[in-house]
């Protein structure tokens, strides 16, 4: 199952994209109270959005972005654009999803 939810809607030539990603966004500073060890950092570092193959926005995130991160952005586009969103985390995991702009 995809970890990404996207809603992309066009109005007057600009597309508003709202997206939610499922990710723990572990900072590396939280302490496991049972063992006294820190939970290792695990967070999304990069989110890339492409519309019809062209980059629209490249986001760099640190560990201070909330768990199950939310991102919204706006670009000049039109109905029917193929919007592709990809995330990449510090452990090398990635996921991507493509939707059609409504």
């Amino acid at each position: 199952m995809s970890t990404i939810k996207i809603r992309a809607k066009e109005r007057n030539g600009s597309v508003t994209v709202k997206t939610l990603m499922k990710h723990p966004m572990e900072t590396g500073q939280r302490v496991n109270k049972k063992t006294g060890d820190k939970f290792p950092a695990h967070f999304i570092q990069e989110v890339i959005a492409k519309a019809n193959g062209d980059e629209v926005i490249v986001v760099h995130w640190g560990p201070a972005v909330s768990k199950n991160p939310y991102l919204t952005f706006v670009y000049n586009g039109s109905k029917g654009d193929k919007l592709e969103l990809t995330w990449l985390d510090n452990k090398g995991n990635r996921d991507s999803k493509t939707v059609e702009v409504k």
Partner: peptide, 12 residues
């Protein structure tokens, strides 16, 4: 292509 409008949620 992008407009300077962004939103997210952060930890403080």
């Amino acid at each position: 292509k992008s407009l300077p409008i962004i939103g997210t949620r952060i930890k403080m």
